[in-house]
């Protein structure tokens, strides 16, 4: 399997002495949809900055499709596109000009650039806005414009730094569909996000970064399998007896109020067995929901482990 990106012992210390990266190493395979997760200031954007050459690394190496970004500057840059966290195009230029200019930077002849520009602006629902100045676009449109711009040279690797931050749910879902389509067509995608649900939905592999260190680097499936307990919030139509005891070894209960309780079910125990206990004591369940996003729970436990 071809490695799309290989990062070895990457370290970055800023001029003010802040160590943003403390020797991280990770590899992303070609075709992967990879999530880089971490809290604010963990080092995600610095990692992307080093890959995209906007941040000078202190030590370590980065290879894109087997070529070192320091020694094969131009070849490696042709291979990736970057969608930054903050809007970084001129607010005074027209939508089409922004994408066409980007195509020009990558040496695309004008005719091909115009075709690609139309293709990606249409795919991202911006074609009707092509002659408008970018400052008139909504926040979501600006993000889509940055994705269209990053794709115009059709890179093999697309790096997205929190692409759906501040985007409404509907638009986020449509961006997920688009990114999945791009990934299915063969483009490797690396995504940083705060939305853990986003990573869970889209990504096959994941690395969690905290305080400049990789604290987990595995497949999403393996990571989720690590979860051996789930917490449910149950609302009841009947009153919950204050002395209610589930009498189950792998389940615990905490009463929140007389019609609401929190039940923790550990691995191996079926929810049906818990419900059977409620039937026995005559408690009718009105509704049930997961207390937390499963990945969020894991994510927090990984970060706690790093403290």
């Amino acid at each position: 399997m071809t490695i799309a990106i290989s990062i070895q012992n990457l370290a970055k210390t800023y001029a003010n002495g802040f160590e943003a990266l403390k020797g991280i190493s990770l590899e992303v395979e070609q075709g992967d949809f990879f999530a880089l997760l971490g809290p604010n200031g963990a080092g995600k954007s610095t990692t992307i900055g080093v890959i995209s050459t906007l941040v000078n690394k202190t030590s370590g190496s980065v290879e894109v499709f087997g070529k070192n970004v320091d020694t094969h500057v131009y070849e490696t840059k042709l291979d990736f596109g970057v969608v930054p966290q903050e809007v970084n195009f001129s607010q005074f230029e027209k939508v089409r000009d922004i994408v066409m200019t980007q195509a020009g930077y990558y040496g695309l002849p004008r005719k091909l650039a115009a075709e690609r520009c139309e293709k990606y602006l249409r795919k991202l629902g911006l074609w009707e806005k092509r002659d408008e100045r970018s400052r008139s676009l909504s926040g979501g449109m600006k993000r889509r414009l940055m994705i269209a711009r990053a794709l115009v040279h059709e890179p093999r690797l697309l790096i997205l730094d929190e692409p759906t931050a501040g985007v409404d749910i509907e638009l986020r879902r449509s961006m997920w569909e688009f990114l999945t389509e791009i990934n299915n067509s063969g483009t490797t995608i690396i995504l940083t996000t705060h939305y853990l649900e986003e990573a869970e939905q889209l990504c096959r592999n994941i690395a969690i970064i905290d305080e400049g260190r990789i604290v987990e680097n595995t497949s999403m499936r393996k990571l989720l399998n690590e979860l051996d307990s789930q917490v449910y919030i149950l609302e009841t139509t009947s009153q919950i007896p204050p002395d209610l005891d589930l009498k189950l070894e792998k389940a615990s209960l905490e009463i929140i109020d007389e019609h609401c309780m929190e039940v923790t079910v550990s691995g191996g125990l079926s929810v049906n067995e818990v419900f059977a206990v409620f039937s026995e004591v005559g408690i009718k369940i009105d509704s049930m929901r997961n207390k937390t996003n499963r990945l969020e729970q894991l994510f927090l436990s990984k970060l706690e482990g790093n403290d």
């Binding site: 500057v73 131009y74 809007v87 970084n88 195009f89 001129s90």
Partner: peptide
């Protein structure tokens, strides 16, 4: 400086333009 200020210079710096 406007390109720097608006960060649009990053478009160029990330691109393969020498």
């Amino acid at each position: 400086f406007s390109h720097k200020f608006q960060h649009s210079i990053e478009e160029l710096l990330v691109s393969p333009v020498p």
